[in-house]
């Protein structure tokens, strides 16, 4: 499967979740449909972490919480040094961690092109 990131919409009430859940928090529904999470979002907060856990051979890495226009908020890595709360960012999908036998992919946000 092509790596992609999704929100999960409750088929009963339409509430969106990321990541997937077994039960909808709003209505208790148990069926969801995948909705692609892509494009631009707004950076709500961010940090640069200098004490990374085992497995990361880098001096620091940026992280942020991003809100998509559909209201879904996610955490991700930041692939830009130019960070500010409220800035527009663009979601890309890439390898966020190299694992033994498998890599993990997830959101890597970049600064959105100026409109």
């Amino acid at each position: 499967m092509e790596p992609g990131m999704y929100a999960y919409r409750c088929t009963a009430c339409g509430k969106l979740f990321h990541p997937a859940r077994a039960v909808c928090r709003e209505c208790g529904g148990r069926e969801f449909e995948a909705v692609p999470l892509e494009g631009e979002g707004t950076l709500l907060t961010y940090t640069r972490v200098y004490a990374l856990p085992e497995g990361y051979m880098k001096p620091w890495l940026g992280f942020g919480i991003v809100e998509f226009p559909n209201g879904v908020r996610v955490s991700g890595q930041m692939n830009t040094e130019d960070l500010a709360v409220g800035m527009k960012v663009r979601a890309t999908v890439g390898t966020v961690k190299e694992g033994v036998g498998r890599d993990y992919y997830g959101f890597i946000f970049e600064k959105a092109a100026q409109a």
Partner: peptide, 13 residues
């Protein structure tokens, strides 16, 4: 999986 840690969330908070 992102390398997020408790210090990372505390920093963003």
């Amino acid at each position: 999986a992102y390398g997020l840690t408790l210090p990372a969330f505390a920093g963003m908070f």
